[in-house]
Each structure stands twice: as C-alpha cells, then as structure tokens.
Design a protein around this nucleic acid. Structure first.
Length: 226
DNA sequence: GAGCATTACCCTTGAGCAGA
DNA sequence: TCTGCTCAAGGGTAATGCTC
C-alpha cells in the first residue's frame, strides 16, 4: 500500500479539551478532518489510514531543551537547569529571530501539561512507523498567506483563512459552522508535512534541541491549485 | 427561563521593537 | 538604557446566542 497521506495534529493540554487532526493526500485533498480527545480515540480515527501515513506533523514541542528532561515538566522538585543563559531550544530562538514569535519550552512555561502531552503524543505515534516532525502552523500561515492578519480564535479570521486555503486549492468539506482553530492548525500542520516530503520546506534548529519544519519562502507555486 | 454551545477576552513568559 | 507595548498558545471564564 503506498504511503501517500500526511497527518497534521494540533494537541491540546489534556483529554478534557478538544484537539485537532487532519489527513490530506499527495494531491492536497482532505481525506479526514476533525477533533479528538484521548489517544485511544485518535488511534481509532487513524486506524483506516495508518498504513498509508507518510509524515506526521505535530504542532508542539517533541523534545525538551537538551539540558532539561521530562521530569522538569512533571515535578516541581526537579533540579535540572539550563546553564545556557537563554531559555528554550535553539530552534525556537531561531524562529523568533526570523520574526515568527513562539513560546519557549522552558521549566517555567505556563503550559507544562501541554508540553508534556506533546512528548507523550510523539511516543504514542511512534507505532505508525513513519516520520514524525515538529511543525509550527503560525509560521506556515505567515509564509503561505502573508497578507492574512488577525487573531486565530476569531470567527472572522477562521473564515478568512478558509477562503485563503480555498484560493490555494485546498477545499475544506462543506460545514454549517467555520472550522475550529484546532482543526485549521492541524490542516496547516498536514500541509507542512506534505511540503517536507516535496522538499519545499526547511528545518530550523540543531541535533541537540531538535528541529522545527517550516515552508520555504517560494510561496506562489508551493501549493498548486487543483 | 433553563440549559447548552459558541465566542471572545484575559492571563501567563519572554523576545523584539519603538519611543522617551 | 529603560519602559511599555505586542503577540505567540492553551486554559479559564464571562458574555452572547440559540433551542426547547
């Protein structure tokens, strides 16, 4: 069976809240898009596709800075410290330097539970035997749709993003309400994963702290309309 | 009016930028 | 140099809208 599907995931901090997922094929057709909560539910959703998934793009850190460990995000008594004066990972600092603001993965992050769940998600998906990469939908959005502005939570912004995606040949299944920002971020994560496979993306970071993948800035023909 | 779903705002940390 | 502002993402919560 050919591996020609790309999975994007936008995880929330716990199973109590909705996370987003999206599966697209090599022609950018959306195969499945929606929400999930527990890992078991996600596994059930992915069951029909798992043999065909080529690359998984996750919107979240897949590893801590090299001087920190998992315990730094679970225990208040952990004594690991970043000796480096700057917090976060190299890849995150490079993104900020390029103008793509992001949160730094550090011990005093206010979203430790989300960081930890991203690590767990990577472990959980390792059974898929495909490439698992870290992506940053905000940067993908900025590169592919530089004229798109606003706050992603707002209804107006999401409708506008859907229109931009449609103009680029990515047609979302008709729905009464606009898609949630979780689903749209997951879609952008899947789009980034496809671009990685097409060698139209670059990786930022280093071996010790990990890499974040973003689209190359060749924009117009990155996504060929259908 | 009750109950539920949706929306939008505020809070957190930290880097970058503008202006005093 | 210092201060204040902006804004990344997720959680909490108040406000709003809709259905029964």
């Amino acid at each position: 069976m050919p591996r020609n599907l790309y999975l994007g995931i936008d995880p929330s901090a716990s199973a109590a809240r909705d996370s987003g997922y999206c599966v697209i094929n090599d022609s950018q057709r959306i195969i499945s898009i929606g929400k999930w909560r527990g890992f078991e539910e996600l596994a059930h959703i992915l069951e029909p596709f798992k043999q065909q998934i080529c690359i998984v793009g996750i919107d979240g850190p897949l590893q801590p800075p090299h001087e920190l460990h998992r315990c730094c995000f679970t225990s208040e008594e952990c004594h690991h410290e970043q000796n480096n004066s700057a917090p976060g990972r190299i890849c995150e600092r490079l993104l900020i330097r390029r103008g793509y603001r992001c949160f730094l993965t550090s011990k005093n992050s206010f979203v430790k539970s989300w960081v930890l769940r991203c690590f767990d998600l990577k472990d959980f998906l390792s059974d898929l035997s495909c490439q698992i990469i870290e992506v940053f939908p905000y940067a993908t959005r900025k590169i592919l749709f530089p004229d798109l502005h606003g706050k992603k939570q707002t209804r107006e912004f999401r409708l506008n993003l859907q229109k931009h995606l449609k103009d680029r040949g990515i047609r979302l299944p008709e729905k009464e309400k606009p898609y949630s920002h979780d689903e749209l971020d997951a879609l952008l994560a899947a789009v980034t994963a496809r671009l990685v496979d097409l060698r139209q993306a670059e990786r930022i970071g280093d071996e010790r702290d990990g890499y974040i993948y973003i689209p190359l800035k060749i924009s117009e023909d990155i996504i060929t309309p259908l």
